[in-house]
Design a protein around this nucleic acid. Structure first.
Lengths: 187, 187
DNA sequence: GTCTATAGATTGATAGAC
DNA sequence: GTCTATCAATCTATAGAC
């Protein structure tokens, strides 16, 4: 693998683990086995490399979610599948974790992967909720977009609860609560 | 106000805005109008001051939530009130925002205010859900603790969605979705 | 209790050889 | 394309005067 590629992957790992402020160019170079000159040859600086890495992480997450949401099963099955999907809970969400970083959200180019990912995800889940309503699986008197936003937020907030507790259980408790609430929409 | 107090309040502000890694002792001193010597006289270092500030922020949030949850109204009213409570959405949650900081969660003393706050909050909301079930307002066939975790997570995740979007609306959409799901438990 | 001076390490970036 | 050397600024903390 070439140096550029190693730099992007090292940046993806470190951004997930340490965030944008917590990740130094030096640390990325060390993990990638590349020198200063190499990094500044391929990228204009830290922000440029971070943007590339973040975009790639966002694309990966989106593709992974689409496999679930566009797969087989009833709408309720797919929504439940999204909530119960296996995740590395204590590592946090590789996309959503950056929402708290003031420098990252202040830069439109760095925030773009976050905005795109969650706008798409909310819209995609809303489609599935609407499908469920049309199929008569779910009550039709709720706003699909609002329910979708609540489900995405439950997952993102689940990471917050688990990391705050230092253990993964609160994440599962939150998503199971969402599954139960969703089931009430089906009765 | 004395220097110690000014340092704690300056640290509370900066930790909320910039997080732990993003806040330097120097920046706290500047905002507090205190010198290096003053800060290191009252606190052993950055972590000690941050712990004090974070604990105070957590106590304030808990007291604010208890006013709502222990107030009047039906259980459903109080749960809805928690979800719809006015918040400074784009600033993020002053407690939950720290869950993504690897240095903070790695230090048990710094993580303690987060763990305590959310453990209490989940438990307190679970009590209200259980009250609602006993009063016949809410269906009794769901786990109160799971529903409570889902509601807290919706709020925490709502911050993530709003900050990722650069606008507050996704927060309100998520909490309204949770309100709608909760209403389905009442029918 | 508060100040200034100082310290060693790290940050993010540039220069220039090869 | 990659390396080493260097840079000014900042980080967190300590020392010691007052």
């Amino acid at each position: 693998m070439n140096a550029r590629e190693r730099l992007v992957e090292a940046a993806q790992d470190l951004l997930w683990e340490r965030g944008y402020v917590g990740t130094s160019p030096r640390a990325i170079q060390d993990r990638a086995g590349a020198g200063q000159g190499s990094m500044y040859h391929h990228f204009t600086g830290k922000a440029d490399l971070a943007r590339t890495a973040l975009q790639r992480t966002a694309d990966r997450e989106r593709a992974g979610a689409e496999v679930l949401l566009g797969g087989g099963g009833t709408a309720l099955d797919r929504l439940t599948g999204y909530l119960r999907r296996e995740r590395q809970v204590l590592r946090g969400c590789p996309v959503g974790r950056h929402a708290q970083d003031p420098d990252l959200v202040a830069d439109p180019e760095l925030r773009a992967p976050l905005e795109t990912t969650f706008t798409w995800l909310r819209g995609r889940l809303a489609e599935v909720v609407a499908e469920g309503q049309q199929a008569g699986e779910l009550r039709a008197d709720v706003d699909p977009a609002a329910v979708a936003a609540a489900l995405v937020a439950t997952v993102q907030g689940g990471y917050v609860l688990a990391r705050s507790a230092g253990r993964p259980e609160p994440f599962a408790e939150a998503t199971e609560g969402a599954v139960a609430l969703l089931a009430a929409l089906a009765r």
